[in-house]
């Protein structure tokens, strides 16, 4: 099997081009990413103080999923309106380079919010430093899984006007339905298995375990890894990089 070497220079350059520039010149967007998880955290606090740790931990998971799934809009916009994908297809960039470039760009641009949640998780003692490291690794796995999924979905959206709507619907479905803001033990096991098809479900189950909020359930790494591999393969092999 031929191994394709990633275009690292492009990935870095694109992350700076699309991520750092927004951080530098469009900071309003940075705050917009924080709005929903902060609002939900506040709501949980008002309803029941006991659920605040779930809100703080869930806010981090929501931000990561938001970075991934909202990139559906970016992919379609950059392809249809900016024609950036055509420009890059006719160069030495492959779909993996592009997906990683955009993911890191969105990661850079969301970094103030992510850092804010990390500090909040530590300050409220939801996680300790050791478990935080694992939560961050888990979040990265979720980030890339979600990004591959986003590219795959975006490649099948023909018109830009549909993309933001699809992203919003999926964002809500992926962060409100799964046990992101509530204990996963509230759900019957068959519902948990069904919801495990959404990457935020296994991520939240493991994160709640790492934080000591629930029993640690490592077996949920399996669906998350499977989704990572499946979405990667589909995004690179099936999605439309070169137009048909």
């Amino acid at each position: 099997m031929r191994v394709r070497i990633l275009n690292l220079k492009f990935i870095i350059a694109f992350a700076m081009f699309y991520g750092y520039t927004y951080l530098k010149r469009g900071f309003v967007y940075v705050f917009s990413y924080l709005a929903e998880p902060l609002a939900l955290m506040f709501l949980l606090y008002m309803i029941n103080h006991r659920y605040l740790p779930y809100g703080v931990l869930g806010g981090l998971v929501t931000m990561i999923m938001g970075i991934s799934i909202n990139s559906i809009g970016d992919y379609v916009y950059l392809r249809n309106e900016i024609k950036l994908q055509d420009l890059l297809v006719a160069s030495q960039v492959g779909p993996t380079d592009y997906i990683l470039g955009l993911t890191f760009a969105n990661l850079i641009f969301s970094s103030p919010g992510i850092l804010g949640y990390i500090v909040l998780n530590l300050a409220l003692r939801v996680v300790n430093v050791v478990s935080l490291v694992f939560v961050i690794l888990l979040s990265l796995l979720l980030l890339f899984t979600g990004s591959f999924l986003a590219f795959m979905i975006a490649s099948f959206i023909p018109q830009t006007r549909y993309s933001w709507g699809v992203a919003t619907i999926l964002f809500i479905a992926f962060t409100i339905l799964p046990p992101v803001y509530y204990p996963y033990t509230l759900l019957p096991s068959n519902v948990i298995y069904a919801l495990s098809m959404i990457p935020t479900t296994p991520t939240s189950i493991i994160a709640q375990g790492l934080a000591g909020l629930q029993e640690l359930n490592i077996k949920y790494l399996i669906p998350l890894f499977v989704e990572f591999i499946v979405f990667y393969l589909i995004s690179v092999k099936v999605s439309r990089w070169r137009s048909k």
Binding site: T21, R25, G26, L78, E81, I82, K83, L84, A90
Partner: peptide
Amino acid sequence: ISSIPQEAQPVGIA
């Protein structure tokens, strides 16, 4: 090759 597509637009913020 290098190809500049029709109607290519710059990313406004960059």
